[in-house]
Protein backbone atom coordinates (compact mmCIF):
# COMPACT_ATOMS: atom_id res chain seq x y z
CA UNK A 1 0.00 0.00 0.00
CA UNK A 2 1.36 3.41 -0.91
CA UNK A 3 0.76 6.53 1.09
CA UNK A 4 0.59 10.02 -0.23
CA UNK A 5 2.68 12.36 1.92
CA UNK A 6 2.56 16.10 2.18
CA UNK A 7 5.94 17.61 1.15
CA UNK A 8 6.81 18.74 4.70
CA UNK A 9 5.84 15.40 6.19
CA UNK A 10 7.74 13.52 3.51
CA UNK A 11 10.91 15.33 4.57
CA UNK A 12 10.22 14.37 8.17
CA UNK A 13 9.85 10.73 7.21
CA UNK A 14 13.09 10.83 5.27
CA UNK A 15 14.86 12.15 8.34
CA UNK A 16 13.33 9.38 10.39
CA UNK A 17 14.99 6.68 8.30
CA UNK A 18 18.52 7.63 9.35
CA UNK A 19 18.89 6.30 12.90
CA UNK A 20 17.67 2.76 12.23
CA UNK A 21 21.00 1.19 13.15
CA UNK A 22 21.04 3.08 16.43
CA UNK A 23 17.63 1.74 17.39
CA UNK A 24 18.71 -1.81 16.58
CA UNK A 25 21.87 -1.51 18.70
CA UNK A 26 19.81 -0.22 21.59
CA UNK A 27 17.59 -3.33 21.54
CA UNK A 28 20.36 -5.82 22.23
CA UNK A 29 22.28 -3.73 24.75
CA UNK A 30 21.46 -3.94 28.45
CA UNK A 31 22.14 -1.46 31.22
CA UNK A 32 23.52 -2.65 34.50
CA UNK A 33 24.42 -0.68 37.62
CA UNK A 34 27.70 -1.61 39.31
CA UNK A 35 27.90 -0.74 42.99
CA UNK A 36 31.35 0.32 44.14
CA UNK A 37 31.72 -0.80 47.73
CA UNK A 38 34.64 -0.04 50.02
CA UNK A 39 35.39 -1.44 53.44
CA UNK A 40 37.24 0.86 55.82
CA UNK A 41 36.77 -1.23 58.94
CA UNK A 42 36.47 0.92 62.04
CA UNK A 43 38.20 3.92 60.47
CA UNK A 44 36.27 6.83 58.93
CA UNK A 45 36.33 7.42 55.19
CA UNK A 46 36.88 11.05 54.12
CA UNK A 47 38.21 10.59 50.57
CA UNK A 48 38.67 7.90 47.98
CA UNK A 49 39.99 7.67 44.44
CA UNK A 50 39.29 4.47 42.53
CA UNK A 51 39.96 3.31 39.01
CA UNK A 52 37.67 0.87 37.19
CA UNK A 53 38.67 -0.82 33.96
CA UNK A 54 36.64 -3.15 31.75
CA UNK A 55 38.98 -6.16 31.56
CA UNK A 56 37.04 -8.29 29.12
CA UNK A 57 33.75 -8.24 27.29
CA UNK A 58 31.87 -5.42 25.65
CA UNK A 59 30.91 -2.74 28.15
CA UNK A 60 30.92 1.03 28.20
CA UNK A 61 30.46 3.43 31.07
CA UNK A 62 27.35 5.52 30.56
CA UNK A 63 26.62 7.06 33.93
CA UNK A 64 28.01 7.86 37.34
CA UNK A 65 25.94 8.10 40.48
CA UNK A 66 26.69 8.88 44.11
CA UNK A 67 26.75 6.43 46.98
CA UNK A 68 24.63 5.58 49.99
CA UNK A 69 25.89 7.59 52.97
CA UNK A 70 25.09 11.31 53.05
CA UNK A 71 28.79 12.16 52.89
CA UNK A 72 29.11 10.49 49.49
CA UNK A 73 25.58 10.88 48.18
CA UNK A 74 26.58 13.25 45.37
CA UNK A 75 28.08 11.66 42.29
CA UNK A 76 31.89 11.50 42.49
CA UNK A 77 34.26 13.52 40.38
CA UNK A 78 35.05 11.86 37.07
CA UNK A 79 36.42 12.76 33.69
CA UNK A 80 33.51 13.16 31.23
CA UNK A 81 35.80 11.64 28.62
CA UNK A 82 35.35 8.34 30.48
CA UNK A 83 31.73 8.15 29.41
CA UNK A 84 31.25 5.81 26.51
CA UNK A 85 34.67 4.33 27.28
CA UNK A 86 35.94 1.36 29.24
CA UNK A 87 38.04 3.07 31.90
CA UNK A 88 37.17 5.62 34.56
CA UNK A 89 38.71 7.17 37.64
CA UNK A 90 36.20 8.30 40.23
CA UNK A 91 37.00 10.27 43.36
CA UNK A 92 35.12 12.04 46.11
CA UNK A 93 35.84 13.62 49.44
CA UNK A 94 33.74 14.78 52.35
CA UNK A 95 34.35 17.19 55.18
CA UNK A 96 31.19 16.04 56.98
CA UNK A 97 31.18 14.91 60.56
CA UNK A 98 30.61 12.08 61.24
CA UNK A 99 32.04 10.22 58.27
CA UNK A 100 30.98 6.72 57.26
CA UNK A 101 32.85 3.63 58.40
CA UNK A 102 32.58 -0.13 57.82
CA UNK A 103 31.22 -1.29 54.47
CA UNK A 104 30.18 1.66 52.37
CA UNK A 105 28.62 1.91 48.91
CA UNK A 106 30.46 5.00 47.72
CA UNK A 107 29.22 5.15 44.14
CA UNK A 108 27.35 3.34 41.41
CA UNK A 109 28.53 3.18 37.83
CA UNK A 110 26.01 2.57 35.08
CA UNK A 111 27.24 0.29 32.36
CA UNK A 112 25.95 -0.49 28.92
CA UNK A 113 26.79 -4.12 28.25
CA UNK A 114 26.58 -6.29 25.19
CA UNK A 115 26.93 -10.06 24.95
CA UNK A 116 28.44 -12.13 27.75
CA UNK A 117 28.89 -10.59 31.19
CA UNK A 118 32.02 -8.40 31.04
CA UNK A 119 34.75 -8.57 33.67
CA UNK A 120 35.74 -5.50 35.64
CA UNK A 121 38.85 -4.64 37.60
CA UNK A 122 39.02 -1.99 40.31
CA UNK A 123 42.04 -0.42 41.95
CA UNK A 124 42.29 1.97 44.89
CA UNK A 125 44.46 4.93 43.90
CA UNK A 126 44.08 6.91 47.11
CA UNK A 127 42.04 6.98 50.30
CA UNK A 128 42.18 9.14 53.39
CA UNK A 129 40.62 9.45 56.79
CA UNK A 130 39.13 12.64 58.19
CA UNK A 131 42.52 14.07 59.17
CA UNK A 132 43.85 13.54 55.65
CA UNK A 133 46.00 10.56 56.63
CA UNK A 134 46.33 7.64 54.16
CA UNK A 135 43.78 4.91 54.72
CA UNK A 136 43.98 1.27 53.77
CA UNK A 137 40.70 0.18 52.23
CA UNK A 138 39.31 -2.84 50.40
CA UNK A 139 37.17 -2.26 47.34
CA UNK A 140 34.81 -4.49 45.42
CA UNK A 141 32.47 -4.17 42.46
CA UNK A 142 29.01 -5.57 42.93
CA UNK A 143 26.79 -5.76 39.84
CA UNK A 144 23.13 -5.37 40.61
CA UNK A 145 21.04 -8.22 39.35
CA UNK A 146 17.97 -6.08 38.66
CA UNK A 147 18.32 -3.33 36.06
CA UNK A 148 17.70 0.30 36.84
CA UNK A 149 15.31 2.67 35.18
CA UNK A 150 15.11 2.32 31.41
Amino acid sequence: MRHRLLPGRAALMALALAPAALALADEVARFRPLDIIVDVGDRQLAAYQIELVVRSGDATIVGVEGGEPAAFKAAPYYDPAALAGGRIVIAAYSTDDPLPSGRVRVATLHMRELGEAPRYQVKVLAAASGDGQPLSIAVEVQPRTTGGER
Partner: peptide, 8 residues
Amino acid sequence: AIPTGTVK
Protein backbone atom coordinates in the same frame (compact mmCIF):
# COMPACT_ATOMS: atom_id res chain seq x y z
CA ALA B 1 25.52 11.15 32.05
CA ILE B 2 22.62 8.72 31.93
CA PRO B 3 21.73 5.92 29.49
CA THR B 4 19.75 6.82 26.38
CA GLY B 5 17.04 4.44 27.55
CA THR B 6 16.65 6.49 30.71
CA VAL B 7 16.30 9.67 28.66
CA LYS B 8 13.58 7.97 26.63
